[in-house]
């Protein structure tokens, strides 16, 4: 194997793109050729080092501009959102409404009777309203 072929294959090897059957001849050559061995070591160091190169942070100004995506989503989602409710929740809700209506009706009736009783006592009526009969003549 010549050195140029060896170096091309080293490049592919580092990218995990070198076919399996070419590995043995490559490493055989590396065992014999110091120049290619040095190339391999240095290229591998750079290859590993390049993976750790850090990203530069995008300017805040751009983040602010693209925040419109989030804001837009909120507006769109309110317009198009579908509301769902589970069956047990629906049953509990209906039950709660019925209980509330009954409570209002019963407490209203009791209160009505109390007011009527107070009025009767104020007017010194001895007979309950229900027993008062009117003479139409």
């Amino acid at each position: 194997m010549d050195c140029l072929t060896s170096k091309v294959q080293i490049s592919q090897f580092l990218d995990n793109e070198l076919p399996q059957e070419l590995l043995q001849p490559l490493f055989y050559h590396l065992g014999e050729c110091e120049e290619c061995r040095n190339f391999f070591v240095r290229t591998k160091v750079v290859h590993e080092g390049a993976k750790n190169v850090e990203y530069a942070a995008v300017p805040k100004e751009l983040d602010e501009k693209f925040a419109v995506l989030e804001m837009g989503e909120k507006n769109v989602s309110l317009m198009n959102r579908k509301f769902t409710i589970s069956v047990p929740t629906a049953i509990y809700s209906i039950g709660a409404v019925i209980v509330m209506v009954l409570f209002i009706y019963v407490s209203g009736t009791i209160q009505e009777k109390q007011i009527a009783e107070q009025y009767r006592q104020t007017m010194n009526l001895t007979m309950p309203f229900s027993e008062i009969s009117y003479d139409r003549n």
Partner: peptide
């Protein structure tokens, strides 16, 4: 955008 902003900017 959040996933690629720094990569693209770099």
């Amino acid at each position: 955008y959040s996933r690629y902003k720094n990569a693209i900017y770099s």
